[in-house]
Simulated assay, not measured.
Amino acid sequence: MSPEKSAFLRERHPLIFSATKQSHPHAPFSYWGLQCGDGWAGLLDDLCRQLQCETAENGAPQVVALQVKEKFGAIRFYAADLAARQRNLVQAAEAASKTTCETCGAPGALIDGLWVKTRCTAHAAD
């Protein structure tokens, strides 16, 4: 993810993206940050907003992202100790990413080639 989009998400959701090498020394997020395309920034923003609402309004545990990456054409959001509703929100975001272009955020589809990726028609060759 671009530094600008990453900074935007970290600024909007500082509690979720708080993993550092000191606080979570084995968390890939603390070393590599957000490992996906800019097109999924909106999905991640929505997911984080919903996760934080679950914490604030329903007493769910505070989510700290341990790893956020693309795998097999979908977003993967890893965090420890999620409540059932929080797990459902993560699964819904992962499902939505399979129909959202990772490059630009437009409607897309899984493309199976050398690598599985989710792209719109404009970015299918990327």
Rank of each mutant, 00 (worst) to 15 (best):
C53T: 15
Y78L: 06
H13V: 02
Q35N: 06
Q62A: 11
Q91G: 08
E54A: 06
E11A: 12
A65H: 04
V63D: 02
P28V: 07
Q91E: 15
P14D: 06
L34H: 02
A80N: 11
H13G: 01
D81R: 11
C36S: 10
C48F: 05
V64H: 09
Q52P: 01
A80Q: 12
Y31M: 10
E94R: 03
A65Q: 03
D38C: 01
S30M: 04
K69N: 14
R12D: 01
A74G: 14
A41V: 13
A65S: 11
W32G: 01
R12L: 10
A74D: 06
A79F: 03
D81K: 08
A93Y: 06
V68H: 01
H26P: 00
G33E: 00
T20L: 06
L43W: 10
A92Q: 14
L43S: 03
L15V: 11
Q86K: 04
I16G: 01
R49F: 14
Y78K: 02
P61I: 03
L82A: 08
V90F: 10
K71S: 13
Q67N: 15
W40D: 04
E54C: 08
N58H: 15
I75Y: 08
K21I: 11
S6P: 00
F8E: 12
Y78S: 03
P3V: 07
C53W: 13
A92K: 01
